[in-house]
Simulated scan of single mutants.
Amino acid sequence: MGEVRVSPRDSEVRVSLGDEVVVELPENATTGYLWSVQHIDGGLEVTSDEYRAPGQVLPGAEGQRVVRVRPTAAGDGVVRLVLKRPWESAVQDQHSVRISVSD
């Protein structure tokens, strides 16, 4: 059982059943744009979704959105996150990760 970290550059990851995938994306909450899980499938489930504030509290400082995903079955799945203001429909950015899970 391990932890696999995914950066904004990663679009695919291979893990074993029992591993946890950690997706970390830069987020500046003061702009109103927040990352959220828009879609998840293929035997994957979100176990936590949190914002981590920057180490120094400065106006406009960037924090991190940390989403933890756990596979519940072997196979392929996708988790897609979107960056948008909750009160708007327009998407500013998106990030998808294909997760291949082996026994």
Score class of each variant (00 low, 15 high):
residue 3 E to G: 13
residue 3 E to S: 14
residue 6 V to D: 04
residue 10 D to G: 02
residue 13 V to L: 04
residue 16 S to M: 08
residue 17 L to A: 02
residue 25 L to F: 00
residue 26 P to E: 05
residue 27 E to K: 05
residue 29 A to Y: 00
residue 33 Y to L: 15
residue 36 S to F: 03
residue 37 V to I: 13
residue 38 Q to A: 13
residue 39 H to M: 09
residue 41 D to N: 13
residue 42 G to A: 11
residue 45 E to S: 09
residue 45 E to Y: 07
residue 45 E to N: 04
residue 47 T to W: 01
residue 48 S to Y: 05
residue 48 S to A: 08
residue 49 D to M: 11
residue 50 E to K: 11
residue 51 Y to E: 14
residue 51 Y to I: 07
residue 52 R to H: 08
residue 53 A to I: 05
residue 54 P to Y: 07
residue 55 G to E: 14
residue 56 Q to H: 10
residue 56 Q to C: 06
residue 56 Q to R: 09
residue 57 V to D: 14
residue 57 V to A: 15
residue 58 L to P: 03
residue 61 A to D: 09
residue 62 E to F: 02
residue 64 Q to P: 09
residue 66 V to L: 09
residue 67 V to Y: 00
residue 68 R to G: 10
residue 69 V to L: 00
residue 69 V to W: 03
residue 70 R to N: 10
residue 72 T to Y: 01
residue 72 T to M: 08
residue 74 A to T: 03
residue 74 A to G: 05
residue 75 G to H: 06
residue 76 D to V: 00
residue 78 V to E: 03
residue 78 V to I: 10
residue 86 P to N: 12
residue 88 E to T: 08
residue 93 D to P: 03
residue 95 H to D: 10
residue 96 S to A: 11
residue 98 R to G: 06
residue 98 R to M: 07
residue 101 V to M: 08
residue 101 V to T: 09
residue 103 D to S: 14
